[in-house]
Amino acid sequence: MGNYKIAIIGSRETILGFKALGLEPVYATNSSEAVESMFSLKREKMGAEGESRNKYAILFVMEDLMMDVTPDDYKKLTADPLPAIIPLPSHLGSTGYGLKKLKGIVERAVGMDILN
């Protein structure tokens, strides 16, 4: 157990506000940039010698940047218990990506979509 950091990935104007809350802002303007920064944030470790753990526990990512992430990359990113990658709706409004993701999870677990 210990202290972790939270990062937010998105376009400059959207995530400025979160910077004031003490989150680590990472600027990205398109999906490939976002994926790249997600991978590098995921790789960042810290802790005393011997035991190392992830530096970031949560990565918030703007939905519009998550749209074009390939399923393969997504799988790799979410394979480990930490960090949690959470899509957030941007200032453009919700795109439904988050709910679609939930639906995908349900379908995987139950075999059919039982939400709604």
């Binding site: 210990g2 950091k5 939270i6 400025l16």
Partner: peptide, 16 residues
């Protein structure tokens, strides 16, 4: 705006 946000003293720590 950026200047104003720089003054923020908020610190966020997450325990897991």
């Amino acid at each position: 705006l950026e200047g104003a946000l720089l003054y923020s003293t908020a610190k966020t720590e997450l325990k897991v």
